[in-house]
């Protein structure tokens, strides 16, 4: 599904290298987690995959189902099936959440040559999916993320993911700022989307989230590289001992 080879990335505006050769292969239906200390390059990996400005790719490649992601505009990556759940979802005053969702869904359908959803069709689907995430009609009417609590913002990300039905979901610290109940709700939303075909990359600091979204593979990232890869037990090891042991082991 997602194949990243020797990805090296620096900042566009200053001479600073952030990713120093990331290799990552995620197969169809797999859930991978990336853990790592602050500043290790986890969020940068997600931004570079989604196509955010401000980064220079100096080497390597990233492909989604054989298509070169790095050559595409962000909206093309989305239409190709990539979805990034933001660590800090952006507030957009003046744009209604519902309008935004429908515009996004139909823009992707249009880009893929599919028929756009009518207002009625869209409404039926969004209501059903919003209900399972405990997102009420009021939240759908409000401007995108404006005045949303931390938990509401993250649920809204998962709602977008559910509506857009991507092939490859990247979750950037979706657990940050969530209490235990909110995290469970978000995790349930994610798990509901696991259908054996859709793949996930879950970026997190903490093992907690991985209790709820069970990964197949866990990677440890440090200094812009994947330094260790293992099974779910690797996350538990980090939880108990921190990153120091692993960093020392690799060094």
């Amino acid at each position: 599904m997602l194949n990243i080879k020797n990805l090296k990335v620096g900042l566009a505006e200053e001479d600073k290298q952030i990713l120093n050769g990331v290799d990552l292969n995620i197969g169809e239906g797999e859930v991978h987690a990336i853990m790592g200390p602050n500043g290790s390059g986890k969020s940068t990996t997600s931004y570079v995959l989604a196509g955010k400005d401000g980064y220079n790719v100096t080497a390597g490649s990233a492909e989604l189902n054989g298509e070169n992601l790095l050559d595409m505009d962000p909206e093309e990556r989305a239409a190709a099936g990539l979805f990034l759940a933001f660590q800090y979802p952006v507030e957009i005053p003046g744009v209604g959440n519902m309008t935004f969702l429908r515009t996004a869904v139909n823009a992707q359908r249009k880009a893929r040559g599919e028929k756009e959803l009518t207002a009625g069709e869209f409404l039926k689907i969004v209501r059903e999916k919003a209900k399972s995430l405990k997102i009420d009609a009021e939240m759908l009417k409000r401007p995108v993320n404006v005045g949303f609590s931390g938990g509401e913002k993250k649920r809204n990300e998962i709602l977008q993911m559910a509506m857009l039905e991507p092939k490859m979901c990247v979750l950037d610290e979706t657990d940050s700022g969530l209490d235990v109940d909110a995290m469970k709700l978000v995790a349930e939303g994610v798990n509901a989307l696991r259908d054996g075909k859709r793949s996930f990359l879950v970026i997190t600091h903490y093992q907690r989230l991985l209790d709820h979204i069970k990964p197949d593979v866990v990677h440890i990232m440090a200094n812009g590289k994947i330094i260790k890869t293992g099974g779910p037990e690797l996350a538990l090891e980090v939880e108990q001992n921190g990153y120091a042991d692993i960093l020392a082991e690799v060094a």
Binding site: A50, E75, A78, G94, F100, T103, A104
Partner: peptide, 22 residues
């Protein structure tokens, strides 16, 4: 805000128009 919209598949021009109207 533009990046948020385009990352959801909204073409850049349309995303800009949405923000202008907002």
């Amino acid at each position: 805000a533009i990046f948020y919209l385009v990352s959801r598949g909204v073409p850049r021009k349309q995303a800009q128009d949405m923000l202008v109207l907002a």
